[in-house]
């Protein structure tokens, strides 16, 4: 059981990193990765929303959706959207500075595919409550890791004499590709025993 949870965590964090291996959550990855500081906060906010999503989805899957499978997608979307709304209000109240720093990006988390993807993966793999939480934690950590790596690289590349054609998204994608290449080293982690 323990090793199963460890594997879920490691797999979702690095082996099948949401951003670098599954292309989920690219909007914040490309948009909010200019500064390490913001990236960290975005990662934290994401992880938080993921955890809440995991719990909500578990509840939906257990109690509601067996009776109406065709409402799955709509239910997910609406529950997640409302939860993000709540998070937004809580953050606005507790840390206005954080709210200002994340600005328009918090609402973006709603339309962040990573969140919905988590819900779908969790459903397809029929994770238990605990597995779902660990999965959310691992995915969130993975998103945050990718964000921070990208941000620190972008901070340094900002001073580089990048050719004009490559400036902007093309370069960021190249860096993302290189990171993704590097993360291939984690393939098979903890599954060889």
């Amino acid at each position: 059981m323990m090793s199963d949870l460890t594997w879920i965590f490691v797999s979702s964090m690095v082996v099948n990193n949401f951003t670098l291996m599954l292309f989920l959550g690219l909007c914040p990855f490309l948009g909010v990765s200019g500064k390490i500081d913001t990236a960290l906060r975005m990662g934290a906010a994401n992880t938080f929303v993921l955890l809440i999503t995991a719990m909500a989805v578990w509840a939906l899957n257990t109690f509601v959706l067996p009776y109406a499978p065709y409402l799955r997608l709509i239910a997910f979307i609406i529950v997640i959207a409302s939860l993000v709304q709540i998070v937004e209000m809580v953050i606005k109240k507790l840390s206005p500075a954080l709210f200002r720093a994340l600005g328009i990006y918090l609402p973006l988390i709603t339309t962040n595919c990573a969140i919905l993807a988590l819900a779908i993966f969790q459903t397809n793999r029929s994770y238990t409550f605990l597995q779902g939480l660990v999965f959310a934690l691992g995915s969130g950590a993975g998103l945050a890791l990718a964000l921070v790596l990208m941000a620190s690289i972008r901070e340094s590349v900002e001073l580089a004499d990048v050719p004009a054609v490559a400036k902007g998204t093309a370069l960021v994608l190249m860096i993302a590709g290189s990171l993704s290449l590097a993360f291939m080293g984690f393939a098979g982690l903890l599954s060889s025993s």
């Binding site: 290189s178 993360f183 291939m184 080293g185 984690f186 098979g188 982690l189 025993s193």
Partner: peptide
């Protein structure tokens, strides 16, 4: 613990 026999290249790149 990984799936690969060798990891020096990936370790350095990361």
């Amino acid at each position: 613990w990984g799936g690969l026999a060798e990891g020096v290249m990936y370790a350095i790149l990361i």
